[in-house]
Design a protein around this nucleic acid. Structure first.
Lengths: 121, 121
DNA sequence: GAGAGACATCGACAGATATCGAAGCAAGGA
DNA sequence: TCCTTGCTTCGATATCTGTCGATGTCTCTC
């Protein structure tokens, strides 16, 4: 990822919450809001990331270590790469406990995306 | 319908409806479902497309002609390119009436995406 | 400490994507 | 019929993205 272009798109740190953006029917999106929202959707725009995300989301206890979800048909570095993207988008958080790293869903961000898509015309 | 391995990702024609995919917490996503969902999210993963979409969605009457929404900071061919992507993803439909082409939101597809994001842990 | 296992980062590369100018096509008006 | 306007398609190009093997870092065990 090339550093610092136009939109600063700050990298989210684990645990951050983004209460982003009005429903998409509320009016024209500002450029800044559009950038934020696009970044979140982009995080879910890859089949591998989507499968990783759903594995975490559906895992008992609400969290899963990488070893539990890594079987998605790509190499281990690629899995790590995608998990990083999901983390940076604020969709997942990670925590190291001993040997393993556990991921869990950051609910508020996903809820925000769902709210934006709530059409209710 | 569950035949394809490599997921041919058929281009959607205007008016098609995709009743796609279970909630993301319901369990692991199949490869095919992940491909479908990723294609929809990818359509909204660009700031320009997001702004175009919100302009259509928030336009009085639920539809807008290209001339009404084309001011998003990129050239007119680029606008057309993005509208085509949104059409192919099933998020917008288009109809020519005389000189102008009108776009409107395809609600069912967007509702499907919102449903998938409905966490309800 | 040394070794092993679990993840992350690095470097490289093929394929996809966004963007533009130019050209094409359709519809309406002079 | 020709011209203008609205929109799409085409061709070119710079940039981004997904993927992998190799390597680095952390932690636990012996």
């Amino acid at each position: 990822m090339s550093n610092s272009e136009v939109a600063e798109l700050p990298v989210l740190r684990d645990g951050d919450v983004v209460p982003c953006c009005p429903p998409i029917t509320a009016g024209e999106l500002s450029r800044a809001d559009a950038e934020k929202m696009a970044a979140m959707f982009k995080a879910l725009s890859d089949p591998v990331r989507l499968r990783l995300f759903s594995k975490v989301a559906s895992h008992p206890g609400g969290e899963a270590c990488v070893c539990d979800i890594a079987d998605v048909g790509v190499s281990q570095p690629t899995v790590s790469h995608h998990l990083k993207k999901l983390r940076e988008a604020g969709l997942l958080t990670s925590e190291r406990r001993g040997t393993w790293v556990y991921y869990r869903v950051a609910p508020s961000v996903v809820a925000a995306m769902a709210a934006m898509l709530d059409l209710r015309a």
